[in-house]
Design a protein around this nucleic acid. Sequence first.
RNA 1: GGUCCCAUCGUCUAGUGGUUAGGACGCUGGCCUCUCACGCCGGAAACCGGGGUUCAACUCCCCGUGGGACUACCA
Length: 471
Amino acid sequence: MIKKPRVRFAPSPTGELHVGNARTALFNWMFARHSGGKFILRIEDTDESRSALSYQINLYEDLKWLGLNWDEGPHKQSERLDIYKEHLQKLIEKDLVYPCYCTEEELEDERQALILSKRMPRYMGKCKNLTADERKQRENEGRSPSFRFKVHPQVIEFEDLIRGAMKFEGEAIGDFIIVRSNGMPAYNFAVVIDDHLMAITNVIRGEDHLSNTALQMMLYRAFGFEPPVFAHHSLIFGKDRAKLSKRHGSVSVGEFRKQGILPEALMNYLGLLGSSFTEGREILSREEMIKDFSLERSSKSGAIFDEEKLHWLNAIYIRNCKTEDLVARLKPFLEQAGYKTDAINTKWLNEVIELIKTELTTLAEVGSHIDIFFDDKYKMTTEAKEILEKDSARQVVKTFAEYLKTSDDTPQKLYPAAIKDVKEKTNAKGKELFMPIRAALTGKVHGPELDKVFAILGKDATLKRLKYFTA
RNA sequence: GGUCCCAUCGUCUAGUGGUUAGGACGCUGGCCUCUCACGCCGGAAACCGGGGUUCAACUCCCCGUGGGACUACCA
């Protein structure tokens, strides 16, 4: 039997969940779900100064919102410190590490000196051959050491599932720190131990970790661990082809949520970005993406985040959303726009949303489309005013209102009959006929089909609005 | 500077030696229509450059060029 894959998503809780990280999570999740393997969540919170619990909570919420459910974890590195200590001990025993007493200032000076002499800035091994006495002396000075891994010049090779054969000349790498002077493990050290102990079979992560992989491979060798299979996907860029960051606009999952992007749309878009699905399909449900997922189809080159395409997808997901369901999702946005949803008749609201569904690109826009149905939100745009300045237009509105007032038609027949009547009495047709009514009725020159607007508004509300123009 | 990765329309991509280089977003022309949106039909738009290999290169190799990542006691 083939071992079921185990993959992990291992973010550090140092900020809002970035869409780039969300994409990495998505890839891992799809890989696990596609293969029937496990998706594990690990929190890399070894940087005490940058990690915050609030970000961690935020992260869980975002992942849940996206529907990226995990099978194990969250494992927190901050709770596994003993494990890293044990493993450091193992390497010390093998004489593969040494304590380094250099201060950050000293290291910075060394780096600057190397740069000045046009040499590669790297650690030159000052503390590598300290005698026991020298070490003792530094300890007595109150210095606590970091631990460095002894790097031997070597060629590192591995097979990347996305990029193929990778080869690194290890020469440029200096002895790197695996445990910091405060006792916390450094990234490359902790990942290797955790991935091994958690029996991770496939490491799927961003291309920014490609160089790190060489260091990690050395550690795998040092421990005698079997390395996992690596796959480094491309990064997401902003419009200027630099790594996507705050200055490019919205970049965190939370921001897109607040804008009224649907999680399905965001997942779909992220799955599409820097990748493709069978037969060029672009609109896929989670299930379809999982079924069709393949790392080999992941692009090697970076992809620019195209918010317009995201919006296009979002609009499609909104349109395809069942109206009842959409209304529920819309409620927070309506509240925010000043609508008291509790006070609105549900059946009526469903009808309204059904009508304006196709006009929405994001949920947050709902307020500016729905306002025409609320007396306290209804207001005249200047374009609408201009239309109603004409006498002929006012005549149309007046005739229309007159008919409504005096008619005893059934609600279904009322609107078509009224239009017919206005047509006959004023000779207006097409734009001349409908625009004045639209302008007076909705205060806008754009909007849903008038007969439907009328059906929702009803006779009384309509007459109330028309009163001003018929005086 | 060093190590490494990448390179098809503006953008996301399909393509795996022989194609009119396909699709999608966006842009644009038209249809539908009281308007907007939706929908439908059409259009413009790309193989970074130079050498090879080959009967034949977008496709394979090399060199440039360009972009990116890493180069921390961050992950």
